[in-house]
Design a protein around this nucleic acid. Structure first.
Lengths: 236, 236
DNA sequence: CGGGAGATTGACTGATCTCAACCCGGGTGG
DNA sequence: CCACCCGGGTTGAGATCAGTCAATCTCCCG
């Protein structure tokens, strides 16, 4: 799984400095991090860690996209969120000492740096700004989770799919032709929305009929974001 | 809304020390808190703060029970969680500086102490243990939120109601006869489960038929917790 | 060319929501 | 003292959204 010389320590240092929660560390503190390690690499579909496993540190995403999900006891996955470069995974379990409550799996080839939990907790206790940044991340996830709960509880599948498409556009960006830069199976889409593969397919083709989106296999083009927004917000 | 001499500062100090996130403060730090204030009191139904308002500190629940909820744009409420004595509310907004994403309303007569945000952020930055405790609270809420998302997305209303009843029992305790010590309208129950009042009523009477619970108006008696657990977990 | 995974479509089912009527108990005002 | 009212609770009938099941299709790969 390891590849050599993918990263030299200079670029890892830059990365930590510029785009992660570790950005406000002092030089000395930064030197305590595993800047010289080679990030673990994962292919699409590879599991980083599983629900129920013990997590002993932060997984910092350096490259790629990870899905973070829970598996219901009927075996159906619910995708909670995605992690992109600069995001951290597993911090909840690291902080509380509980077992992981989610599984994580690469959906685009990924490189991940592991930061041991003791280093993190030491930083929380000694660097107030770091603690604050971490708190902000947790709180912002919390808001998203609360919104999600209300949406799933109150909105129809159609509304949620529209909303998810817009969210994907915001999260993963799009190319010159408005194609979303993210590759998801219909099943994965269903697992975000909280519905079945078949329903996603039917609704996507409905949206396509209405000219709201265009679909080329897994490539999704958002044509009328404003209409989608209406569809997502307003009950009829 | 204010009553005088409800609390002397000694008992507030004890309270902060024994049951709140401020329990690990030094004497000096504790003295910075509003120990001499009289908690604001709220009757059942009174609003503490509304979604969209600016929150500038922690609301520490001293007495009573509060529901924390979001209102969907069709006007239906989704109850996210409850706050009991010792719990804090509004910390998410205080930390991130965003507007409140939930409303809070007393469902049992409540007394609440307000702690200004600057004091809290100062503590986060200067007291590592406090930062850690706060992080743990956020992370633990995060886990609950993730579980909730998966449940609502995957389980039937029947399963969710069974689960909510068990959860209420855990959260609010029960008296000698197994009656839940919490007074909720059918509508409020529905707003936890994420369904309609009518569905809650039908399912409650179904549970009653099956001898799983007993219902006396708003008083709910859990008779067969184990059966409810089965009902809540297993898909059929 | 055969196999398999993912995507699609159709028919059917049923859980849950909606709407509307009705009940019940407590409080109020004439 | 009683009629009325009102909020919450209950019940029934009907509508429908979305899930299930099964068949088929389309690639892509070995």
């Amino acid at each position: 799984m390891k590849e050599n010389k993918l990263q030299d320590s200079a670029s890892l240092r830059d990365f930590f400095r510029s785009t992660t929660v570790f950005r406000h560390l002092s030089e000395a503190e930064l030197n305590g991090l595993p800047l010289h390690s080679v990030p673990d690499t994962y292919k699409r579909g590879a599991v980083i860690y599983q629900e129920g496993s013990r997590i002993s540190g932060f997984y910092v995403v350096f490259q790629g996209v990870i899905k973070i999900y829970k598996t219901g006891n009927d075996g159906k996955d619910q995708i909670i969120r995605f992690a992109k470069p600069g995001d951290i995974m597993g911090f909840r379990s690291t902080i509380t000492g509980e077992l992981a409550c989610t599984s994580t799996r690469a959906i685009e080839p990924a490189q991940i740096v592991f930061v041991p939990g003791e280093q993190v907790t030491r930083l929380v206790k000694t660097n107030g700004d770091f603690a604050m940044d971490l708190l902000q991340i947790a709180c912002s996830e919390l808001r998203e989770a609360n919104d999600y709960i209300t949406d799933i509880a109150q909105k129809t599948v159609r509304e949620r799919l529209a909303e998810v498409l817009l969210q994907l556009k915001r999260t993963f960006d799009w190319d010159a032709e408005q194609y979303l830069k993210i590759n998801l199976t219909r099943e994965e889409l269903a697992n975000i929305v909280g519905t079945t593969t078949e329903s996603v397919i039917r609704l996507l083709s409905e949206f396509k009929q209405q000219g709201l989106v265009n679909i080329q296999g897994r490539r999704i083009q958002i044509l009328k974001a404003e209409k989608l927004r209406l569809l997502a917000d307003i009950n009829y």
